[in-house]
Computed example of a mutant assay.
Amino acid sequence: MTWDVALILLTDGLANGAVYLLAGLGLVLVFSVTRVVFVPFGDIAAFAALTLAAFETGRLPPTIGLVAVLALLATLTESASLLRRGQWRSIPGAALAWGLLPLLPCALAWLAAGPGTPAWLHVALAVLLVLPIAPLLARVVFQPIADASVLVLLIVSLALHFLLSNLGLLFFGPEGSRTRALVDGALTLGAGFTVGGQVLLMLAAAGVLSGLFFLVFERTVAGKALRATAVNRVGARLVGIRPARTARLAYGCASLLAGLIGVLIAPVTTMYYDSGFIIGLKAFVAAIIGGLVSYPMTALGALAVGVLESFASFWSGALKDVIVFSLLIPVLMLRSWMSVHSEEDPEELEP
C-alpha cells in the first residue's frame, strides 16, 4: 500500500465516518431519552435518499403516501387514547397535530414535484418529507409501551424495521437510485491529491451539525429538557418536564439527522429500499463504543468505524463488514472489564 492509496482510503473513511457520526448521535439521543434502540433510523435515511431521487426524475415521491398512512394511524391512536381518558374535547387538536400537520410537507412536495424546480428545494423537501416519520412511528408503536423493558423495546424496534423495509419495497420498488452530486468540483492538495466536493460537504455537514447539536443541548431550554429526561425520567417529571414531549422532540431530531444523512449519501452510493439497515448497524457500533450515552465517544467511534471500514475494503472487500462488526468484541470486553460489577450477597438470597 502506497501513501497515495492510504490517503485516498483515509479520506473515504472519514467521509463514511461523518455519516456514521450523525447516525450515531441520533441513536444515542433517542436511546438516552426513551431507552429505545431505534433500529429504523437507517430506513428513514434510505427513504430520504429515494425521495430525492424521485424528485430529480420528475416523479411524485412515494414518501407522500407513506407519511399519509402513518399520519392516519397516529391520529386514530391518539384519538382512541383520548377517548379512553374521557378527553374527547381534545380530539380536534389531536387530529390537527397528528393528522394535518405532518401532511404539510406532503402538500409542498406535491406542488413542487415536476421539472423546473430548483435542486436546493428538492433537497429541502426530501428532508421535510421524512421529518414526521419517526415521531409518527413513536406515537403509534413506542408511546403505548414506553414503560416496557429495554429488551421488549428492542424487539419491537427490530420488528418495526422489517415492517418499514417491506413498506419501502411496496412504495419505492426494488430499483436502486443515485442522485446528482450536491456540490461539484474538487479540492486539490499537495502532490496531486484531490478531494471531491461531495466528500468535503459530508465532512463539513458532520462538523457543523455536531456543533449545533452541542449548542442546542447546552444553551436551549429544549436541549436541557432532553438532558434532564436522559439523566432521570422521574426527576424530570417532578420538575414539570413531560417525558412524552421530550421523546417526540428526540424522535424529531433523529428524523432530521436521518433525512440529512440520506441526501448526503445519495450522490455517492446507490440506495435501495433496504440500504439503510447496514448504515444503522455500523452507526450502532459507534454508539456502543460511546456506551450509548457519550456523544464525544460516539463521534470518535464513528470516525474509527469509517476509517476501519475503508481500509478493510482495501484488504478484503468481502470481509469488510465482518471486520467492522468484529470491533464490537474488544469494545464490549473492555467495557465489561472497566465497569464495576456488584456480586449478590448469598445471605440476602436466603428466605
Rank of each mutant, 00 (worst) to 15 (best):
V37W: 12
V140M: 08
H122A: 01
R233P: 15
V19D: 02
F171W: 11
R84H: 12
L264K: 08
A124P: 04
L104E: 04
G207P: 03
C253A: 14
L27W: 10
W315Y: 15
P115I: 01
L129K: 04
L137M: 15
T220Q: 00
P105H: 08
P102Q: 14
L209T: 07
P174S: 05
G262R: 00
A95N: 02
L163N: 03
I289C: 13
V239N: 11
L137G: 07
S90R: 09
L9S: 06
K282W: 07
V199G: 04
L151S: 11
I44T: 13
L203V: 12
L215Y: 06
P296Q: 13
P132E: 07
L200M: 15
L160I: 05
W120K: 03
L128I: 06
G185Y: 02
G13K: 02
G301Q: 08
V156I: 13
G190A: 08
G17P: 09
L212M: 10
A46S: 10
A250R: 12
R227H: 11
F193R: 07
S32R: 14
E344Y: 11
I145Q: 13
S255I: 01
L292D: 00
L82M: 01
V285E: 07
E347L: 03
V19C: 05
E350K: 06
A254R: 10
W110T: 05
S79H: 02
L72P: 01
R237W: 14
L292F: 15
A49D: 10
F31P: 05
A191I: 01
F47S: 12
A18V: 05
A48L: 08
L83R: 14
T77V: 00
Y20R: 15
F314A: 15
V140D: 12
L125E: 06
E344G: 10
A225G: 15
H341G: 00
M271F: 01
I323H: 05
Y295C: 05
Q87A: 09
A250E: 06
E309Q: 15
R227W: 03
V36E: 01
W315R: 14
L125C: 01
A6D: 03
T220M: 07
A254K: 12
S32D: 13
G65I: 09
L104M: 11
I145F: 14
R233Y: 10
G58N: 11
I329G: 04
G280R: 11
T63N: 09
L83S: 13
D43N: 00
G235H: 09
L128D: 07
V263P: 00
A186M: 06
V322K: 10
I261H: 00
V123F: 07
L182K: 08
V36S: 06
S165A: 14
A148E: 13
T229A: 11
V293G: 03
T188D: 02
V293E: 05
L170Q: 12
Y295I: 03
G185A: 04
R245Q: 11
L101S: 05
A312Q: 13
L300R: 09
V331R: 07
P40T: 11
G42W: 15
V263R: 01
L82V: 11
F213M: 06
L169E: 05
G168T: 04
A107L: 09
S294I: 07
A159G: 15
P40C: 11
V5I: 14
T269E: 04
V221P: 00
I64F: 07
L281S: 04
V123G: 03
W88P: 00
L96A: 14
A74T: 08
I133R: 00
A304V: 05
